[in-house]
Simulated scan of single mutants.
Amino acid sequence: MKGLISPPAIYLYREFVDFRKSINGLAALVESETDLSLDSGALFLFTNKQRDKMKVLYWDNTGFALWYKRLEKDKFKWPSREKHQVFTLSGEEFERLLSGFTIIGHKPIEIHSFTMS
C-alpha cells in the first residue's frame, strides 16, 4: 500500500476476527468496540486466527475500501498478549508489519543516508 494513500492514522485491532466479515462487519466492529471515527481516512488493520491474513479497512471520501493480504509461508507478527485492544502504528511500523517484521517491543531500524564523494 506504500504510496497509494496517506492515512492520518493507522490502527491495529489486537484480537483476531472472523474473516467472513467484510466491510460492513468490520466497520460495525470498529463502531461497537472503539470510539474511533471510521470516516477519518485512518486505516484499520485486522487479522484472522491463524495470523496469515490481514484486512485493512479505510474510508477514502467516496466510500469504504477493503484491502486484503495473505502470506504464503509465514504469519504476521501480531501483538496477541498486549493489554490494549487497539494500537496506533506509524507508517514505518505498518510497512514493517506488512514485510513480516515484529513491530511490538522493538525499536524501528534506523536508516542512515550517506553521500559519496
Rank of each mutant, 00 (worst) to 15 (best):
M1R: 09
M1P: 03
K2L: 11
G3N: 04
L4V: 09
L4E: 11
L4M: 12
S6R: 15
P7S: 10
P7G: 14
P8R: 15
P8D: 12
A9V: 02
Y11P: 03
Y11F: 15
Y11Q: 08
Y13Q: 03
R14I: 01
F16D: 08
F16G: 04
F16I: 00
V17F: 03
V17K: 01
F19W: 07
F19P: 02
S22I: 08
N24D: 13
V30Y: 01
S32R: 13
S32A: 14
T34P: 06
T34S: 12
D35N: 12
D35L: 10
D35E: 13
L36D: 07
S37P: 04
S40P: 02
S40D: 06
S40Q: 09
S40F: 03
S40G: 03
G41C: 02
F44N: 04
F44Y: 13
T47H: 14
R51M: 07
R51E: 05
D52E: 03
K53Y: 00
M54F: 08
M54T: 01
K55R: 11
K55S: 05
K55E: 06
V56F: 06
V56I: 12
L57S: 07
L57D: 07
L57V: 03
Y58V: 09
Y58F: 13
W59F: 10
W59E: 02
D60P: 02
N61T: 13
N61F: 04
N61G: 00
F64P: 04
L66Y: 08
Y68W: 01
Y68E: 04
Y68D: 00
R70K: 12
L71N: 04
E72P: 00
K73M: 00
K73P: 00
K73C: 00
D74G: 05
D74M: 08
K75Y: 08
K75I: 12
K77W: 00
W78Y: 03
P79G: 02
S80V: 15
R81H: 11
K83T: 13
K83R: 13
F87C: 05
F87R: 03
T88V: 15
L89E: 00
S90R: 11
G91N: 15
E92C: 09
F94H: 08
F94K: 03
L97V: 03
L98G: 00
S99P: 05
F101Y: 14
F101D: 12
F101E: 15
I103S: 10
I103Y: 04
I103V: 12
I104T: 12
I104P: 00
G105P: 00
H106L: 15
K107Y: 10
K107C: 11
P108R: 09
I109R: 15
E110K: 15
E110H: 12
I111F: 11
I111N: 11
I111R: 13
H112C: 13
H112Q: 13
S113V: 15
F114V: 14
F114E: 15
S117K: 13
